[in-house]
Amino acid sequence: MSEIFMIMFAAILTENFIFAKFYGICPFLGVSDKPSTALGMGMAVTFVMTISSAATWAVYYLILAPLGLEYLKTIAFILVIASLVQFIEMFLRKNIPSLYSALGIYLPLITTNCAVLGSALVNIQEGYNFFESVVFGFSAAIGFTMAIVVFAGVRERLVLADPPKAFRGYPILLIAAAMVAMAFSGFAGMDFTR
């Protein structure tokens, strides 16, 4: 059981996808202008990452590994994740319209997101079993959500700041992101095994 909690805490804090591994920087900068949209994006990522962790684990260990095709995992995962998200989108639209409209535009946006693919690849790299993979995917996405929502709060303040002309827009955004990432590096020394 402590193994599972270790994976969760590491995925959320010490190995945070955005601030420690720098996965998913594109949605992190793209949809973090308001906490509400950031939360929507985070929810969609959580949803997709959890499900894709399960699906890619199955594809890797049931199809690729027995045939000795491990080296093709990246392309296989992209294929599986993209079609899976498409499938889920259709399913939600028919059966759970409220969730469909809540996740809205974010769902198709993250089909080929590197954070989603990254979580699938890390699962294989670390040799997680099925349950651990799902927990890792879920917690990594929670870490992603936390990071993007926290940064959306920072960005709301940035709007009111008056930086020099050369820094306006993305430059100051990247500097702010770097500072938040540095703050997060404080978690790096924490060891959850003890």
Partner: peptide, 22 residues
């Protein structure tokens, strides 16, 4: 393998688009 995998995914989506048509 990839032909089969791709075809399976394609078939899944094709069926889904019929079954879950809104």
């Amino acid at each position: 393998i990839f032909l089969v995998l791709g075809a399976a995914m394609g078939a899944l989506l094709a069926v889904a688009s019929r079954v879950f048509a809104v």
